[in-house]
């Protein structure tokens, strides 16, 4: 179809190319970069450096300690004792590998559980009458107004042997003996699903709410049953939200420390807990740093995937 576009493109407006405005803009952009450099990259380099040091009984408990006053000589001295022995140690002791794997397992399972619970919630919210939606959204965000730590502690009261849950189940007669939930993996799943549910619900709600109802009408009009229309239209179109929600839950869940520490048992090892023990109990800063660096590297892949997904979504919505 030949539709001639008679409207001419608007004339380019000449940007004022004065030095001041150019510098002003650069400075403006530089602020977040400087922030990231100082508060993210610099600490990371310090941790990386510590992970390459040796543990000693001193303060700080590692050697060599790069002495800035020695300048270039100090740097060379540090290079001379460079080795990867902390990383080798991590590879040799199966504790660390097991912690990583167990973290990945727990994070994956809880992400899937969160998705399974979060999707219907988000779907119901998006389908709720318009005047209700803002309230429902508020209710999802509401728990953030209380301290995360307190909320996780509260679960002890619910899940423990003499807790509310057991009392309730015994009272209804579903069980005869109290369930042992606290200090098991189940408690960790409950804790993670509970804590991270809003991170799953919000991106899902955002995509489901935008879903054009006439697409579903068109699908049923063309012979799709409503259930099938959900599978072939709603679900594929909500995938960006599914991905975003899963990454937002998975990434922090892998490194989670508080929930396994408070709700989990001693048999559950997660990398966040191992790191804490290494750092505070063993006071082995170099090994703890190596653990942290590896964790970060491990999470780089899902973070990159998440970024790609976000870019794709931004492109598609244009």
């Amino acid at each position: 179809m030949a539709v001639t576009d008679i409207a001419s493109p608007p004339e380019e407006i000449q940007e004022p190319s004065g030095l001041s405005s150019g510098w002003g803009r650069r400075l403006f952009i530089a602020i977040p970069y400087i922030w990231l450099l100082v508060f993210f990259l610099a600490p990371f380099v310090i941790v990386l450096k510590i992970s390459l040091s040796d543990v000693i009984l001193a303060r700080p408990p590692y050697f060599p300690n790069f002495d800035i006053s020695e300048g270039w000589q100090g740097f060379l001295a540090m290079l001379r004792v460079f080795d990867l022995e902390n990383y080798v140690w991590l590879a040799e002791d199966s504790l660390y590998l097991n912690s990583y794997l167990s973290s990945l397992r727990i994070a994956s399972i809880s992400t899937l559980l969160t998705l399974a619970i979060g999707y219907p919630i988000a779907y119901a919210m998006a389908k709720a009458p318009k005047e209700w939606r803002a309230t429902l959204l508020m209710l999802v965000i509401l728990p953030f107004w209380t301290s995360f730590l307190i909320r996780v502690y509260a679960w002890i009261g619910i899940l423990k042997k003499e807790g509310f849950l057991n009392y309730f189940l015994l009272w209804t007669g579903i069980i005869d003996e109290p369930l042992m939930i606290l200090n098991t993996d189940t408690a960790i799943y409950i804790g993670i699903v509970y804590s991270y549910l809003p991170f799953m619900v919000l991106p899902l709600y955002a995509v489901l709410e935008k879903l054009n109802i006439s697409l579903l009408e068109a699908a049923t009009d063309l012979g799709c049953s409503p259930l099938k229309a959900f599978w072939v239209i709603t679900l594929p179109l909500s995938l960006p939200g599914v991905w975003a929600g899963c990454f937002l839950v998975f990434i922090p869940a892998v490194g989670e420390f508080v929930i396994p520490d408070i709700l989990g048992g001693s048999s559950t090892i997660m990398i966040g807990k191992t790191l804490w023990v290494e750092f505070f109990s063993n006071r082995d800063w170099p090994v703890a740093s190596a653990v942290a660096i590896l964790l970060l590297l491990m999470l780089t892949l899902p973070i990159i995937l998440f970024q790609k997904q976000q870019e794709k979504q931004a492109e598609a919505s244009q």
Binding site: N212, E217, S225, P226, I233
Partner: peptide
């Protein structure tokens, strides 16, 4: 229900499946 009628509709917004 709509999926059991020998009737099809062309929607005002076209309602093309974007994916």
């Amino acid at each position: 229900p709509p999926h059991k009628r020998p009737v099809n509709m062309m929607f005002q917004s076209y309602a093309l499946f974007p994916h």
